[in-house]
Nucleic acid binder design. Structure first.
Lengths: 210, 210
DNA sequence: GTCTATACAGTGATAGAC
DNA sequence: GTCTATCACTGTATAGAC
């Protein structure tokens, strides 16, 4: 007996989505043809078009498919009742680094920038269904810290600028310079992340003279 | 009598480069065909191919064309002898924001990410001829501050992560969500930049208890 | 659902006359 | 340097048999 996800997506659709997500990430949107996707899925183009109305439709499916998975981790952390606000915030930042740099959705930012001119719908959906909920959850966690007296009050957009900026750029850089043999020397994720989290905490913590 | 730039690039080449840069920024690399470029330049494809060996060649020319212009401002600031280190640093960050968000080179990051898999040469050139010199100049300015006692010593990669991260992401976001009618409300450049510069200064300044 | 076969527009690029 | 004409190819997408 197969266990189904709550969303009733046929298995074959999911399979196609995961394979084509890999191809999109490797070769970009325009660099990935429906022929290549069909071949990688072990079927013909005509069969592929039976499952998805077109290339845009397939791409949107790839992007949206990752939303829930990427938000789950953050939701779990936000829901922990026994974590101190500062620890919860750190856990949230680490989770965000993971999704931004490792998970397909996070790594898809350059792709979405690529297609956003042709398909503005993709960008709108990406923002309203992924970016906005992510920021809402993080803001909730920050506000808990403010109310408990651990964090100072900060401007929302400003703090997001400083939090998401480095991690998104790190993801972009690693995609952009993926051909570098010394990628991890130029862009050491763990080290940069830890320093970044420390810096943000230093800014948010209530100091004696604050 | 025509005044020539020091680089002896024919005027027509420059004209083509500037027109096609606009098109690349508007429609991406794959979304911009040689036919469209030729038409926008008021010539045929064959004539266009007389000036550039191919599409990749033209794209590389577009990217490299912006290098010098974008680095000039930073070089000027670094060369000012009568500026206090902290003021020089602020001026440099403001100049970097301008080039990253306004100038074509800065806005081309998503494009370079798009083509980097197909043409790794582009990414390498972008890094060695633009990113690296930019960071070298900025690091020089920071070191002046350290030697004068105004700044504390900081890890190079770490501080670049925090400096370039937000401004590159802001540029990427503005390209990605260019279709938003309230773009400047979501991503107010001046405000985010000022807050960011303040935050970086707060981290670099030597404090009493440091 | 999957296949073969195909339509048809568009791509990057070239040959050769002027 | 610019043109017309054309190349070989790939792109997305569809029709219709099985």
């Amino acid at each position: 007996m197969q266990i189904r996800e709550e969303s009733s997506i046929p298995d074959k659709r999911v399979q196609i989505i995961e394979i084509s997500t890999d191809l999109f990430l490797q070769n970009g949107f325009s660099g990935t043809s429906m022929s290549k996707i069909a071949a990688a899925c072990g079927m013909t183009k005509a069969s592929l078009y039976h499952h998805f109305a077109g290339k845009e439709d397939l791409f949107v499916a790839c992007v949206t498919h990752g939303y829930s998975a990427a938000l789950v981790a953050l939701r779990d952390i936000a829901g922990q009742p026994d974590l101190r606000p500062e620890d919860k915030f750190c856990a949230a930042l680490n989770a965000l680094y993971d999704t931004t740099i490792i998970s397909p959705v996070g790594r898809m930012s350059p792709l979405i920038a690529e297609v956003s001119r042709t398909f503005p719908t993709v960008a709108r959906s990406f923002h309203s269904e992924y970016i906005a909920p992510q920021q809402a959850l993080l803001w909730e966690i920050i506000q808990e810290g403010v109310q408990s007296g651990a964090f100072r009050d900060a401007d929302e957009r400003q703090i997001f600028h400083l939090i998401f900026g480095p991690m998104v750029t790190l993801s972009l850089s690693r995609e952009m310079f993926a051909s570098f043999h010394d990628l991890d020397t130029h862009f050491p994720v763990d080290q940069l992340r830890d320093g970044h989290v420390d810096a943000i905490l230093g800014m948010l913590r209530v100091t004696a003279n604050g």
